[in-house]
Design a protein around this nucleic acid. Structure first.
Lengths: 201, 201
DNA sequence: GTCTATAGAGAGATAGAC
DNA sequence: GTCTATCTCTCTATAGAC
């Protein structure tokens, strides 16, 4: 089965937008990359905006969510530090995955332009994970694995370094710079954080 | 003393770029806001890029740096938690300051477009502060105020939540959304973090 | 130092033949 | 469903009069 022209357009548009944003991905360039004329694009999408909308819709269907959807946070959280290690490992994989990196870039570029993208950003890079992590920390507190505190605050504190690492990794890779030092940093984050919250009995 | 046309151009360009980036700030719009013709701009700047360069140069002359340049990190760090409180207070002020917010936005929008801006971003939003904070934590470790660990790691862990808060504040304010909950979050961050690293004797 | 006028490039989009 | 041709708009930048 050949790739449809429609999916080729989406693929080309995604790449171009990840390189230089919505305005940088002109219909001319998209058409050229696919190997058709600009006018032919309009047989598949109403206009440029429609292409972008479709990309956004597909953006968050993969991920992460699946990884944790399968599991019960209630059960997993009882593993304490091991749970955090697994979570961070998944986060790290996504940070270094080329496809997710493209999406991350598009979101970052376009969130300054469109409110809708800003909301997606907040939801998928903060709120969603904070909520899940807060739940996990709550369970850990109940089982006296970690010290008692506001679970949501703890979740934000745990997530923030991961986000800034991901951001820095993405920026360095834009320039083809090495990111090896970040590889161990993800793990060291868990160790550091755990030492600050663990109850040693 | 009247504002020079040149400085008016810079001011207009800064505002427009903070709203919609380099490409969104057209020479037409800049000229219109200043109250002159586009061609007149070229009497003051070689081209559009030169306007942007000038803005970037001025970006980091104010700030923060001044606040801490006056002080000796060596001495200040001995205050332990009080030092962190003061640092975060300064960080918070900047996060809510309209002028710094404009700069922050421009940097965020344009760092995806230009390597030079990416480097400025890394330097001024991470490296510079991490370096200073690492120095401070090192002093605190020497004085047995905080537990022994890698000072640089500790600095990154301390700074990351501040950065993500600043980012979220900026995004919310773009939409005119309330940011009151973040006001206390800055202080709560210090309390939380301190509890994780402090040596109680 | 500002203006008018205009060049020249690139963008998004449509009409109509095949 | 793709093509050629073309419209219209916006952009950066320059030439030359005042």
């Amino acid at each position: 089965m050949e790739k449809s022209t429609k999916s080729k357009i989406l693929e080309a548009a995604t790449e171009l937008m990840a390189e230089s944003g919505y305005s940088g991905a002109s219909m001319r360039k998209i058409a050229k990359r696919v190997g058709i004329r600009e006018s032919a694009i309009y047989n598949h999408f109403k206009n440029k905006e429609a292409i972008f909308e479709t990309i956004l819709e597909n953006l968050f269907h993969s991920a992460f969510d699946e990884f944790f959807a399968k599991r019960s946070v209630e059960d997993e959280a009882r593993k304490g530090k091991r749970f955090l290690k697994e979570y961070v490992m998944a986060y790290k994989l996504i940070s270094f995955d080329p496809k997710h990196e493209k999406f991350f870039r598009i979101i970052l570029i376009e969130m300054m332009r469109e409110k809708k993208v800003r909301e997606l950003f907040m939801k998928h890079f903060f709120d969603k994970d904070v909520k899940m992590l807060a739940q996990a920390f709550f369970v850990m507190m109940q089982h006296d694995l970690v010290r008692s505190d506001d679970p949501k605050l703890m979740a934000q504190e745990f997530l923030s370094p991961l986000f800034t690492m991901r951001l820095q990794v993405m920026l360095l890779r834009l320039d083809g710079a090495p990111t090896t030092s970040f590889s161990t940093l993800f793990e060291r984050h868990v160790d550091f954080f755990w030492q600050g919250i663990a109850i040693v009995s």
